[in-house]
């Protein structure tokens, strides 16, 4: 546990030692600001609903951008060898890095709170659904970042890690859009797989235990596969 946190702390600091964190957070906030507030002023409703509909799509890009470095860069530079010949478990490395990425995402998410306050000045904002929506985003973010970590564990090339994570995340986010083209039997399955379907409730502020379970399972699965990828170095 101590080691997990030590790795998480180092990784979190590394984000802010380089331009990555500042760049990702700034671009994220600017894009959310523009894409949310431009239509917002055109309509007459004090609601965060559109904000919660928007962020999952931005995360398709920003999730992989946060995670692409995590393991790929350690493989490329050889520091993975230094790290994994210290008394550190492979799980410490995976979980520690995941926590760091989630921490960075949380910072970005907290920095969007002023948007909610801005909205609340234009009318009566119902904070219940907003809280639910943020909890949903945190869960969705965890799953996305875990997928990104998995992609990063597969390669020593950050760009490859980024693209692979992007494709997987895009698949899970958009797969329900293709439901109309699929045979009827496949529809429930596709809807079950889709991140969007599970996030819909949260976007409306309803936290359903089935959705929570879905996001947590997806996160756990991706983390487990990352762990296996790290472990595989020993037998190759």
């Amino acid at each position: 546990m101590n080691n997990t946190l030590a790795i998480a702390r180092r990784e979190f600091r590394a984000y802010f030692n380089s331009p990555v964190a500042y760049f990702v957070i700034t671009v994220f906030l600017v894009m959310v600001g523009i894409l949310f507030f431009v239509p917002f002023f055109a309509q007459d409703r004090a609601s965060m609903r559109d904000f919660f509909a928007l962020v999952p799509f931005l995360l398709i890009f920003f999730g992989p951008a946060i995670t692409m470095r995590l393991i790929a860069e350690e493989r490329r530079s050889g520091t993975l060898e230094m790290l994994l010949t210290m008394p550190v478990r492979d799980t410490d490395v995976i979980v520690g890095k995941f926590i760091a990425a989630l921490g960075l995402f949380l910072v970005a998410l907290l920095l969007t709170l002023p948007y909610a306050f801005t909205v609340s000045t234009f009318g009566e904002l119902d904070w219940g659904p907003v809280m639910g929506g943020y909890l949903g985003l945190l869960l969705l973010g965890a799953a996305t970042l875990a997928i990104g970590l998995f992609a990063s564990s597969q390669t020593e090339n950050q760009i490859v890690a980024f693209v692979v994570a992007l494709i997987i995340t895009m698949f899970f986010t958009m797969v329900d859009r293709f439901a109309a083209f699929m045979p009827a039997v496949a529809v429930p399955f596709v809807e079950f797989l889709s991140i969007s379907t599970h996030f819909e409730n949260a976007a409306r502020g309803v936290v359903d235990s089935r959705d929570v379970l879905y996001f947590l399972s997806l996160t756990a699965l991706a983390l487990f596969l990352s762990f296996r990828a790290l472990e595989a170095r020993r037998w190759r």
Partner: peptide, 28 residues
């Protein structure tokens, strides 16, 4: 065991003292 891998890979974004503190922490 203390190990110096080939070509001494290190976290280049860290200061020397930060790196040693990190290793000391992982070394319990």
């Amino acid at each position: 065991v203390g190990y110096l891998p080939e070509s001494a890979p290190l976290y280049t974004d860290m200061q020397v003292i930060e790196c040693l503190e990190f290793v000391a922490e992982l070394r319990n």
